[in-house]
């Protein structure tokens, strides 16, 4: 990954957030209960957005779109979808 220099270049560079802060699309936020979580990494592998940290199961809410796939696939039910506050 490279950063864009100040001079304009007609080339796109690989960078996070190419669609903006996609976390603002979210209507429900996934919340992990670390007491129940057994770190099976199912949520990490099925997350389409690659926002879940593999080791600690921490979700990056800046980019999480709140699709809820992780909550459905979690075998222990450690992830719940909580409605976002207005």
């Amino acid at each position: 990954m490279q950063s864009v220099t100040k001079t304009y270049r007609p080339i796109s560079w690989p960078m996070k957030g190419s669609g903006g802060d996609t976390g603002s699309w979210r209507t429900h936020r996934p919340v992990v209960d670390h007491q129940i979580c057994n770190k099976c990494q199912f949520c990490w592998v099925y997350c389409p957005e690659a926002v879940i940290d593999r080791k600690e199961i921490i979700i990056d809410y800046t980019y999480c779109k709140g699709c809820g796939v992780c909550a459905v696939e979690c075998p222990t039910g450690a992830i719940t979808m909580v409605k976002e506050d207005e």
Partner: peptide, 29 residues
Amino acid sequence: SIKKLPDTEQVLSGNGACGGCPATMALRI
């Protein structure tokens, strides 16, 4: 097994796909 998959991420967070898009899900793997 899932735990043996490598760490490399070629699909970066915050792209323009819909939430829950199966195409980016597959492209990550």
